[in-house]
Amino acid sequence: MAAVIPAPQAVARKHGGLQRFARRKSTVAFLMALPLIVLIAALVVYPTFYAIYLAMLNKSLERFVGFSNFTFLFTRETFWMVVKQSCIFAISAVIFKALIGFCVAHFVHNVPAKGQRKWRGMLLIPWVIPPAMSTLGWFWLFDPSYSAFNWIFVRLGIPSVTWLGDGNWARFSVILVNVWYGAPFFLIMYLAALKSVPEQLYEAAAIDGANWWQKIWYVTLPMMRNIISITVLFSLIVTFANFDIVRILTAGGPIDKTHVFATWAFLVGIQGGDIALGAAVSLFMFPILAVAAYFILRDISRRGNEA
C-alpha cells in the first residue's frame, strides 16, 4: 500500500498556519493566562456550581428540592436582618474607606517626594497584616472586660463603652475595623490615579481662577472617576463577602446584630449542620453584587465610549 505523501506546499502551509496561530498575540495571551483560568475554574467556578447544587438539596442532602431553600429563607426574620446588616456593613464601610483613602491620598501626594515613600509604607501596614491577626489585636482593644479604649476612657472620666456587647456599638466596631483594614487599598489606588493626572490641567485651572475645591471637583474627580468606580466595586465585593473580621470580633452577636452573609452561612451550614441552607444563604450575595457590578461597569463603559 502506497503511503500518501502530502505535497510539500501543503505541509509548509499547515506549518505556517500553526506558527501564525502560535504567534498571534491573543493566542500567546490565552496560553499565558491558561494556568490562571484553570485555577479560577477549579477554585471558583466549580465551587460556585457545587454551591448551587447543594442549595437545591434538602437538609440531609438526599433529595432535590429546587428553590425551596431560597423561598424558605424569605420567610425568616433573621435572614432579612442579615441582608440589612450586610448592606449596612458593606456600604458604610466602603463609603468611609473611599473617603479616608481619597483624603489621605491627597495628603500623601502633597508630601515631598523624598519622604513620601516612608509614608506610603507606613500607611499600607493595616492592609498588609493578615486580617485575622490584626482583628485579634482589635478584639483585645475592644475586650469586654479589659478594653484598652475603656481603660483610657475611665481615666478621662468618660463612661466605658460595651463595644461588642451592645448591638449598635458592635456594628460600629466591625465597620471601624473593616475601614481601618481596607482604607489603605483605596489610598494606594487613588494615589496612583492622582499621580497620573497631568499637572497642566491644574495649571490651566489655576489660570482660570479655580480654587482648591474647584480643582478637585472639575479636574481631579473627573480624571479619577474610573479608578474610583473600579475600586468601589472591587471593595464592595470583598466587603460584602467579609468573614474574618465579623467572625473574630463578634461571631455575629450580640443577638445576631452583626451577622453578615458569610458568617451566617457558616453558622447555619457548617456549625448548624444544614449545608444546603448555608449554601443558599451564601449564594444570596451573588445577585446583589451582580446588580452593583452591572451598574458600575455600565457607567465605566459609557464613559469609555464618550471618551
Binding site: D143, P144, S145, Y146, T162, W163, L164, G165, A170, T250, A251, G253, P254, I255
Partner: peptide
C-alpha cells in the same frame, strides 16, 4: 452581672475570674 456578659466568649469568663 457585668454589662458585657453578652459579648463574652469562652476566654472572657476565664480572664474575668483570673483578674
Amino acid at each position: 452581672m457585668p454589662q458585657d456578659v453578652f459579648a463574652w466568649d469562652d476566654a472572657s469568663n476565664n480572664k474575668y475570674i483570673i483578674s
